[in-house]
Amino acid sequence: MNPQKLAFGLLRLLAPAHDALAGDLLEQVRRGRSGLWLWRQVIGVLFAGCIRDLREDRLGAFKVVALGWAAMLAFFFIAGDFLAHSGDQTVPRLLSYLGANHAGVLWLERLRYVPATVIGCVLSGWIVGRPVLFYAASVFVALAVAVTAIAWYAAPVPVPHTLFYVVVLALPYWWWSGLLIVPLLIVAGGLWRVASSEPLGRIA
């Protein structure tokens, strides 16, 4: 799918009520507007739609974002507990015997958490991305922003703190890139849910 079709596909999926606007954009693109211009417009449509929807039903949005948080935390608690107590030390030991230094072994050991990170974030986005609940894009974007903001705030929390599980599992050993990866994973989960609920349909 080329970038132009992807832009119109996103618009169709996430802002189905803006059919006339999509027509305006297509008309402009066919008159020579650039792909960059199109993407700026599409992001503007989605952003404006998110803000308007969240303002219109703040309580509803809060409930769904809370549901996303609950799903993510529940998953991270279960996965964190499982990984902490049943971690297989075979690979790190083998690497150690083979001469890998301590930092390298530790880093690889932590890679065990990556699947949990991916699954937890995508799962929470997928859960809140139910179009029947709300205007889906608004909610999973709000969840992505909320999780990123809290993860940023929670960076220095001590180990027993509840938010430690979010920080460790959501942002393992890649602190700055994690702040980008986590919201993207949540948005990907939400998009996956919306796309699987409704076919892409007519695009440019």
Binding site: F8, D19, A20, L21, A22, G23, D24, L26, E27, R30, R202, I203, A204
Partner: peptide
């Protein structure tokens, strides 16, 4: 009000 869908707009109507 909506006009008629046109091909140049991918079959979408003008508002």
């Amino acid at each position: 009000s909506y006009g008629d869908p046109t091909p140049e707009r991918g079959g979408r109507a003008k508002r």
